[in-house]
Design a protein around this nucleic acid. Structure first.
Ligand SMILES: [Mn+2]
Ligand SMILES: [Mn+2]
Ligand SMILES: [Mn+2]
Ligand SMILES: [Mn+2]
Lengths: 226, 226
DNA sequence: GGAAAGATTTAGTGTGACCTAAACTATTCT
DNA sequence: AGAATAGTTTAGGTCACACTAAATCTTTCC
């Protein structure tokens, strides 16, 4: 009846931290990930991050240069990708098989990713035909630990007037935002055209599948188009 | 990205403990559940159980008479049944939809039961047509917290020679045992007849769907027939 | 070059969950 | 009844993970 941890025994907070480091490493070009970035991302006090970071470094999952930041080791990267795979397979399964809305699956996956076995995740993936991306357009790592580096997507906010592109991916952490984007028709796979960009942080006017739409610049920064 | 507990915030060990108390209360006729029983069931030191029991009592989930044992309160019973529902729905889903063997789902469910939301469990149940029992024959509590009290099943070990019955339920915690029972054809719904019972804890000889089989007495004690 | 600002780590607390060993209670047996 | 036994709780320790407050390090800016 006792619930043993599922694998080589990483805790849920440790897995979430590795995932966050992975993500921040990817977005920040090659720079080490700072304590503050992590604290903000994980919604923790900076001191708590330092503690977690020490434990992860002891386990050889990250390299920590005090005051300088943190970098995943090879084994840390593998662990991060395993968690990411679980998360994204679960999200996809919840949407495609169980009928969840795309705005509700992130939180559920955030918990289940730490409890599901590899076998469960593999069975879910197989029953979906081993999808390449999750419902928000993020690539799903393979069982073997590979990940398709998404082909050059830019934030919608950076497109010039008149440029078009296909929505490749949207940030998935905020349910309200996702619901709003869906209501505008801004979902992965849809073609958008930037009609006009107001200066000084003004709204971006779009044509989404023919319909004219206006969105704010910070939202436009979180929609990636290819 | 942070993983908050899913509900009114019971921890996984607390949920497992409540489940164990529920189960022991049901099998031990009306008597209070002792620390030792719980320790054995949960595979913990007795002192650890005392600690857990204190916390649960503080939360009003159990009544604890020191040195005398423990009893679920109404709210503790509700919490136990909610966890039990999750566990059994998940087991059933894993077997029926994802093709897991019935011997492999218990451990998986033991973890997932603490991470899955009510909505997820309800969707799983709905997609199965709200089944009444799990793959091992145990009744699945309803969303509303009711549970069908299984109609008078007796251990196979207690049947007299010549008696027949239908397997109603088997203990699900030991994977090896489940595999063995399946190999004998002893699964819920199958008719068995006791041909002969050797005295002094000797083997029970059965006829399972026509085929003669021999099983040991302690195994026979864990197969319930109706 | 030095001070201020900002980021990071250390120090000290608290909680839940485990453990072992010691103290205590209840029951059972002479 | 009194003593042994079995069961239970208390005492004291550890670990992960959070927090706040206080030090400390780095960077930036005059
Ligand atoms: Mn997500
Ligand atoms: Mn998570
Ligand atoms: Mn089970
Ligand atoms: Mn459990």
């Amino acid at each position: 009846m006792t619930a043993l941890p599922v694998q080589g025994a990483l805790t849920a907070p440790a897995e979430d931290c590795l995932k966050a480091i992975y993500d921040l490493e990817r977005s920040g070009q090659g720079a080490a990930v700072t304590t503050n970035d992590l604290a903000h991302r994980l919604d923790l006090a900076a001191a708590s991050v330092t503690g977690m970071v020490k434990r992860l470094a002891d386990q050889g999952l990250i390299d920590h240069a005090p005051y300088r930041g943190v970098r995943l080791t090879e084994s840390g990267r593998r662990a991060a990708l395993r968690t990411l795979r679980r998360h994204r397979v679960i999200e996809t399964y919840l949407v495609q098989v169980l009928g969840f809305g795309w705005d509700r699956v992130h939180d559920e996956a955030e918990r289940l990713e730490h409890a599901a076995s590899d076998e469960l995740v593999d069975r879910m993936a197989a029953s979906l035909g081993d999808p390449a991306t999750d419902p928000h357009g993020a690539p799903i790592p393979t069982r073997e630990g590979g990940i398709a580096e998404l082909p050059a997507a830019r934030p919608l906010a950076e497109l010039a007037e008149g440029e078009r592109g296909v929505v490749a991916r949207v940030e998935d952490e905020d349910a309200d935002r996702l619901r709003y984007l869906a209501s505008l028709g801004v979902v992965p796979g849809v073609e958008v055209e930037v009609v006009e960009r107001a200066p000084f942080g003004g709204p971006v006017s779009l044509r989404v599948a023919g319909t004219p739409r206006l969105i704010g610049p910070q939202l436009a920064a979180q929609v990636m188009v290819a």
